[in-house]
Design a protein around this nucleic acid. Sequence first.
DNA 1: AAACTAAGTTTATTATATTAAACTAAATAA
DNA 2: TTATTTAGTTTAATATAATAAACTTAGTTT
Lengths: 247, 247
Amino acid sequence: MERKYWVPAVERAHLVLRAIAASPSKKRLTDLTEETGINKSTMFSLLQTMEALEWVSRSEGDYYELGSIFATLGQAYLSGHPLVDRFLTLAQTTVDTIGETVQLSRLEHREIVYLAKKEASHPVRLLSEPGTRLPAHTTAMGKALLAGLPDADVRRLYEGYPLEKPTPHTIDSLDRLLSELAAIRRNGCAFDAEEAVLGFRCVAAPVRDLRGSVQAAVSVSMLSQQWTSKRDAATAAIRKLADELSR
Amino acid sequence: MERKYWVPAVERAHLVLRAIAASPSKKRLTDLTEETGINKSTMFSLLQTMEALEWVSRSEGDYYELGSIFATLGQAYLSGHPLVDRFLTLAQTTVDTIGETVQLSRLEHREIVYLAKKEASHPVRLLSEPGTRLPAHTTAMGKALLAGLPDADVRRLYEGYPLEKPTPHTIDSLDRLLSELAAIRRNGCAFDAEEAVLGFRCVAAPVRDLRGSVQAAVSVSMLSQQWTSKRDAATAAIRKLADELSR
DNA sequence: AAACTAAGTTTATTATATTAAACTAAATAA
DNA sequence: TTATTTAGTTTAATATAATAAACTTAGTTT
């Protein structure tokens, strides 16, 4: 990374937080030094500071976990997005008409970040909560978002990054992805046919700002067995929601 | 704060993040130096680093906002709590029987932090999302949580901290609070009669771990006009949910 | 019980982050 | 237009954070 105008202590904090987030209440000081390569005494001071600031807390046996400040900063991040609040109000109607879970996300590099969710009162619960990240090319929302970029930008974005393939149906070539994005641009909506999670299908539509550039996407997810009966209504409903949010 | 084994850069990052979270996309470098008292060149390096790590991002006109990493760390914090997932599964039943929003929170000093929410498909939406903080003494969940501490601990906790009074019904004396906590201990549940937000009432119950110590609370919230008709059913339902989670 | 190991804490030195001050560029006023 | 202010960037000195190594404590092995 850039080495000028750099604050190494913040980078170290970053490494430690990621290590703790990856497996909370499983790592002690020494584990963290091994995983991050940070000096033991440096780690000692760092953890003291982060504990005092309530960035981390120590559970039984000096194992570290994330502090509640991150729930609060996460909430601040989400509610700072002007779309989130409107989504939570408007999506209720969509959930009520389709009876399936509706979500909002944005693109971060090659990943989508879930911003909000309105769940149907269903026994089946999706594991994606706001803040969850998934590879963009595996999801309907991700493809709807990527379709908002010119092909050249998409190529550049994936240069040197192979396409992960979590299910047999996942798109695994850039050419295939680009041709699908072209279809999405024509169509105005994107589909996911068990490409992210086996047994689940989605339909997504892009949300645009005043200038017409894509800033987020919304989707409806359902078990594959619902697809044939709900597909058309879900497509219409998610298009409607996306249009309402595009203002 | 403790000045030994201290990493000032992390404390500075903390101050900057809080300042940005307080009013995102409203502050530039100079605004942040004024608000935090951090030197301009230090701030420059700090912001460069935090931007590279995607802790912050710059919107139009070099105004800073929080980066999406906080949504992800927030999600990691919340899903790290073993109660959250079970709550989201079990609370659906509670929502369905009462038709009102059910929430989960824990105590952090004199505040409650919301950990999860199951909303009724209602036109009225509560503004509290997971990560939101409220003064404990103003809420039913807060009082249920405080009732899990001995009186001496509660007195010590509030020493030097006056009780905020957001509504005319809010408890504003420590003695009054302690006598109410005693009633909650006898009763097993806590009420909020428009003490946090005018027009809203809640009932809450404590969730205990295997040793019997209170680790979280659950609540049902509703508009005051629902109270007389729903009060008894809500109390029974929230007690049931709390018992189910207390294992 | 003694020796050993592992985890965390302290310290003194050294490498470097922080700072004030100077500088640049852009925006605003005279 | 030129002066003035403001916001951000660069630099050189100096104050201090990061480190290795030593130390302490507790737990484990012989």
